[in-house]
Amino acid sequence: MSDIAASAGWWTRLANPSRFLALSNRLGPWLAGGTVLTLAVGLYLGFQAPEDYQQGSTVRIMFIHVPAAWLAMMCYTVMALSAIGSLVWRHPLADVSVRAAAPIGAVFTALALITGSLWGKPMWGTWWVWDARLTSFFVLFLMYLGLIALHRALDDPARSGRLSAILVLVGFINIPIIKFSVDWWNTLHQPASVLRVDGPTIHPSLLVPLLVMAIAFTLLFFTLHLVAMRNEILRRRVQVLRRNAARQIGESR
């Protein structure tokens, strides 16, 4: 079987978990180092940035909030791409990727919601408004939770990969519909009563730290995703070993 795998394309070769583990061992430290470095630079620049004349120091929440929101959406995109890989090419690492990404995406979404709420208190005078963005993000958070619930309910890796891939894709097709409908709903109920954050164009002194932080968060995502995929592979190996052990005990009697 390994001969067949070796003669096929690079992704089939990567599909061999041992090779993936070896690769991730080499790649992991570099990714983690890059994350720490850019995160440090980004945070330093963020605290060096001038205070906003209206919002004061709270504007710095943006350096966490906005990248977290971007990453929450990127994570779902990564999951959707992996889901296609899992359904079309039955690539086993794609299953692992979907499964590993869901909790990370949920945490980024939660981070975006929490920092948004912290930012909202001084800005809007309330912890939560049913603003179109917050609401659609909340729905996204619910979708992540649903996926995690499905993963927890399914223990057979072969089945769970395809099933969660289908759910991810159904959700992915629905995201634009949900976004559109929430925007419609929002304009219907709260005609521009909340202060828009994205009013003026962003000043370069804020933009640079924001971009550095976005890069840092992206690296953070890939580091976490890599580690989570490693864990998932090892978890499945443990599962197989346990099953084999159970089988052997049955046979020796």
């Binding site: 079987m1 390994s2 795998a5 061999n16 978990p17 190996r237 197989v240 070993l241 084999n244």
Partner: peptide, 12 residues
């Protein structure tokens, strides 16, 4: 026969 886990295909 009982497979070696390093086979790589085993968890698919």
């Amino acid at each position: 026969p009982d497979t070696d886990c390093d086979d790589g295909e085993v968890w698919m």
